[in-house]
């Protein structure tokens, strides 16, 4: 059953234009000019119950605008949205009880209060009975390992500790869908990993559907089974992570350290990425040339060390972004 249904969704923003200098400022008062920015253009997709989906794209692609329309913050110009069979335009308040949101760049906790008081606060605004809130706090305190700082004012917590509490605050009312907008932004690798483990555990234990946007490839690779890539307001890819990787896995990176210098040029199926005389980095398209062919070209007797790897997911994604731009 689809938990999120988006059909031909569009959103245009009207932005005021101002010419340079004082003259421009005066002109904009008398005769203001506006520019229309099509942030989201006719996008459609569905998300199934219990999925962890990555909704990614470069800056300004329309990710956050889409999330804001899905959560009822922004009104779309055209198209239909159903989240848990609720239209966010018509029943924003009803939807609010069913979803949770974490915006990594926006604090929703009261910084002068402790996490415990904050959780009680969120319990109250979602009309959760006090005994249930207490039970949930206890449960999440263990799951997210926050016993140590549950009574420390939020303003004194580290970013990683705060994000953990932000996620708990958005889960107190047991939402069926959780929207995470860059939840690991600014975190160090260890804390990032910790947050990812918690998100995974939460999805497994509570069957929460997770809609994630992130610029961090690690988040996407480690958490999501499906990825939607949006660029210039349109969906450019909607596929499983496996397919995405498989599609690009026919390309391998061969890095070799040579005894003697080799003179190689680009040829069909082989692209020279780096040539520093004794050190070579080439890309082999295995659909056109086999790895064995590539090694033969290098001369196996001449190779001191060799490393064959897949193209990093980060490069795959940025290639998709670039291709779409062209």
């Amino acid at each position: 059953m689809a938990i999120i249904e988006v059909n031909k969704l569009s959103k245009t923003f009207k932005v005021k234009l101002k010419e340079k200098g004082l003259k421009g400022s005066l002109k904009s008062i008398i005769k203001p000019k506006y520019k229309e920015i099509k942030a989201v253009k006719n996008i459609s997709f569905q998300v199934e119950k219990g999925e962890i989906i990555a909704f990614i794209g470069p800056n300004g692609a329309g990710k956050s605008t889409t999330i804001k329309m899905l959560t009822g913050i922004l009104y779309p110009d055209k198209g239909n949205i159903k989240v848990l069979d609720i239209d966010p335009r018509q029943e924003r308040k009803k939807l609010a009880y069913e979803i949770g949101t974490v915006f990594g760049q926006k604090e929703q906790l009261w910084t002068h209060l402790t996490p415990y008081d904050n959780f009680k606060f969120f319990g109250a605004i979602y009309d959760i009975p006090e005994s249930r809130v207490e039970k949930k706090i206890k449960e999440f305190t263990e799951l997210f390992e926050i016993e140590e700082f549950i009574n420390t004012p939020v303003r004194n917590l580290s970013l990683g500790q705060r994000i953990r509490c932000e996620i708990i605050a958005s889960l107190i009312h047991e939402p069926k869908v959780l929207f995470l907008d860059e939840p690991t932004i600014g975190l160090d690798p260890v804390v990032k990993e910790n947050i990812r483990t918690l998100i995974k555990r939460m999805n497994k234990e509570y069957k929460t559907t997770i809609f994630l946007t992130s610029h961090d490839v690690g988040d996407i690779e480690k958490l999501c089974k499906r990825v939607i890539i949006i660029n210039n307001g349109t969906v450019v890819l909607d596929d499983s992570m496996e397919n995405l990787k498989y599609h690009y896995l026919n390309k391998k990176i061969v890095e070799a350290k040579m005894k003697e210098k080799v003179n190689l040029d680009d040829e069909e199926g082989i692209t020279i990425l780096k040539d520093k005389g004794y050190n070579l980095k080439i890309e082999v398209d295995t659909k056109k040339r086999s790895i064995a062919d590539a090694i033969k070209l290098l001369n196996p007797d001449n190779i001191v060390d060799i490393n064959i790897s897949n193209i990093p997911l980060e490069d795959i994604i940025s290639n998709i972004y670039k291709k779409d731009r062209k």
Binding site: G72, I73, K93, A96, I99, T101, F103, Q108, I125, D127
Partner: peptide, 11 residues
């Protein structure tokens, strides 16, 4: 635009 973050709360 911070006001937007209050819109998806049930109050």
């Amino acid at each position: 635009g911070n006001i937007a973050y209050n819109l998806n709360k049930p109050y």
